[in-house]
């Protein structure tokens, strides 16, 4: 009889699975990704290595010495411990953060319109008191530009009514507003001394949001050649809330990570963060097998650093408010060992 190995489900709960059950989950996770995204499966030796990582009874695992990668550390300045500036200092001094991020508590682009000078001042002062590179991070969160939160008609209510043209026009109007706000934000943060802007959870509102963020990235690259732009995604698949928007002649709706990276690079971003959301009803091994299979095609064409998202609920890290360290370290090791990522 096989030994039951303690492992994790996508919701963070402990599950005890035999090695053969973990192997079956990994094979199924790979197969799901292949079927949905039309990508190549992980090689046999890669699946075997993944199995070794998740079948290990060790509480903690890590990459080999010398294989360490850069950590993006988004959300480091979010009043976890003290003030936001002090948070970034503590992440730098105590937590080994490779880079720092100042961000508003709400984390949405629209909400900083009226507090932009305050945000820029905070960043300016924090830059004087830290060493690691610092970015200002927000979510484009295009949904906040739609009624009842914003001025544009709400495409999510127009679509079910069959008012397709009006829905598309509303999302395009919101995208234009987001571009304007984001450029104004980048101007202020560059003047304050920022090293980069981080657009986090891009595409949460579908292709109009991704479209807006790519256009902003292009503008920032043109205006500030030395300013970094980290563009992280909201999911593995760009939802077609508009359906006809294109960038560089490519339709954005339906893009998987490799196609996302192509347009992100074209727009001029300096870092790309692919995201694969967690299925809470499947094991972490299943989730990681699926995630790696979806993201692996990126690594063949990457010209900029790829920092896969491995936070709560993405990249096989459980969707639980305090993700267990044993699950987080396995996700980190699997991503680095098998994909050869540039960072996490």
């Amino acid at each position: 009889m096989e030994t039951a190995i303690p492992t994790r489900m996508g919701d963070g709960s402990i599950a005890r699975m035999a090695r053969s059950e973990l192997r079956a989950d990994i094979e199924d996770g790979v197969a799901q990704a292949v079927r949905r995204a039309k990508v190549e499966p992980l090689a046999a030796d890669e699946q075997e290595h993944l199995l070794d990582i998740y079948a290990s009874p060790a509480r903690f695992v890590g990459v080999d010495l010398g294989d360490e990668v850069v950590l993006s550390c988004d959300g480091t300045g979010m009043k976890t411990h003290a003030t936001r500036a002090q948070d970034m200092q503590s992440y730098e001094q105590w937590m080994g953060a490779d880079l720092l991020e100042l961000c508003p508590g709400d984390y949405s682009l629209k909400v900083i319109r009226t507090i932009l000078p305050y945000e820029a001042q905070c960043l300016h002062d924090a830059l004087l008191a830290t060493i690691a590179p610092m970015q200002y991070g927000i979510m484009p969160n295009l949904g906040l530009y739609a009624k009842d939160d914003g001025p544009c008609e709400n495409w999510s209510t127009l679509l079910p009514e069959g008012r397709i043209a009006e829905a598309r026009a509303a999302s395009e109007q919101a995208a234009e507003m987001a571009v304007s706000d984001a450029v104004r934000m980048a101007d202020a943060m560059w003047e304050a001394g920022a090293d980069a802007i981080d657009f986090d959870t891009t595409g949460a509102s579908g292709d109009p949001e991704f479209w807006a963020t790519l256009r902003v990235t292009e503008i920032i690259r043109r205006k500030y050649p030395e300013m970094g732009v980290q563009l992280g995604m909201a999911g593995e698949f760009v939802l077609g809330m508009h359906g006809e928007l294109e960038y560089d002649g490519k339709r954005l709706a339906g893009m998987w990570p490799r196609q996302q990276l192509e347009v992100v690079q074209k727009a001029g971003a300096t870092m790309y963060g692919p995201v694969v959301n967690v299925n809470t009803g499947r094991s972490c091994a299943w989730n990681m097998a699926r995630a790696l299979t979806l993201v692996k095609p990126c690594m063949e064409i990457a010209e900029i650093p790829v920092h896969m998202n491995v936070g709560m609920g993405v990249g096989a890290v459980p969707m639980f408010v305090h993700p267990p360290g044993d699950a987080a370290c396995r996700a980190a090791k699997a991503c680095v060992d098998i994909l050869g990522l540039d960072g996490l």
């Binding site: 903690f60 695992v61 890590g62 990459v63 294989d67 360490e68 990668v69 850069v70 950590l71 550390c73 480091t76 992440y91 730098e92 001094q93 937590m95 080994g96 953060a97 490779d98 060493i131 690691a132 491995v310 936070g311 709560m312 890290v317 305090h322 993700p323 360290g325 044993d326 987080a328 370290c329 980190a332 090791k333 991503c335 680095v336 996490l344």
Partner: peptide, 14 residues
Amino acid sequence: MHNAHAQAAGMGGI
């Protein structure tokens, strides 16, 4: 979670 990633794969910052 940050600590787990930092120990498992991070470069250690400063």
